[in-house]
Simulated scan of single mutants.
Amino acid sequence: MAWVLGQQLQSGKYTIQEELSEGGFGITYLARDNHGRYFVIKTLNDKVQRRPDFAKFQQDFLNEAIKLAKCSHPHIVNIQCIC
């Protein structure tokens, strides 16, 4: 279920502006919130979501985001989980 340009997430809080890239496991999007700020949102791609072991991938993805969110370094982007 790839998102499309203009699609709104979380009851309109975020709007997809464009797809930035797609890799083996995820898709990265540029989104704008309802205050005009830009965000990058990464989600697991359709191929991974159809796998029988999707729950494991989903948990690993979430665990990685949680670990990165705890990091504070100028060369690491700030992470916010909008799960």
Rank of each mutant, 00 (worst) to 15 (best):
N34C: 10
A69V: 01
S72G: 02
N45T: 07
F61D: 01
A65W: 03
T43I: 14
G6I: 03
F39E: 09
E22K: 15
N78F: 05
L20H: 06
P52R: 13
F54G: 04
Q59A: 11
Q8H: 07
D33R: 02
R51S: 13
Q80L: 09
K70V: 00
D60K: 15
S72T: 12
A69I: 01
I76N: 02
G36Y: 00
Q49C: 14
T28S: 13
C81V: 15
V40H: 10
P74I: 02
K47R: 14
T15S: 05
H73Q: 00
A55G: 07
K56I: 13
V40P: 07
W3R: 12
D46F: 13
V48A: 06
N78Y: 09
C71T: 08
R50A: 15
Y14A: 03
I82N: 07
A31P: 08
F61W: 04
H75I: 02
R51I: 03
Y29D: 07
P74W: 01
A31V: 14
I79R: 09
I76W: 02
G23L: 05
V77L: 13
I79G: 03
G26K: 15
D46W: 11
C81A: 11
N45C: 08
H73L: 02
K70W: 05
A31D: 04
G6Y: 02
F25P: 01
I82L: 06
Q7G: 00
L68F: 08
L5A: 06
P74H: 04
Q8F: 00
R50N: 13
P52A: 04
N45K: 10
Q10F: 05
L9Y: 03
I27M: 10
G36Q: 05
G26T: 15
A65V: 03
Y29K: 06
A2Y: 11
I27S: 09
H35E: 10
K13R: 12
R51W: 08
K13D: 00
L9I: 09
N78M: 09
A2R: 15
A55D: 14
V4L: 13
N45R: 11
V40W: 06
S72A: 10
G26H: 11
G6E: 03
V4W: 10
Q80D: 09
Q80V: 07
R50P: 05
E64W: 01
N34W: 04
Y38W: 05
L30P: 08
N45A: 07
L68A: 14
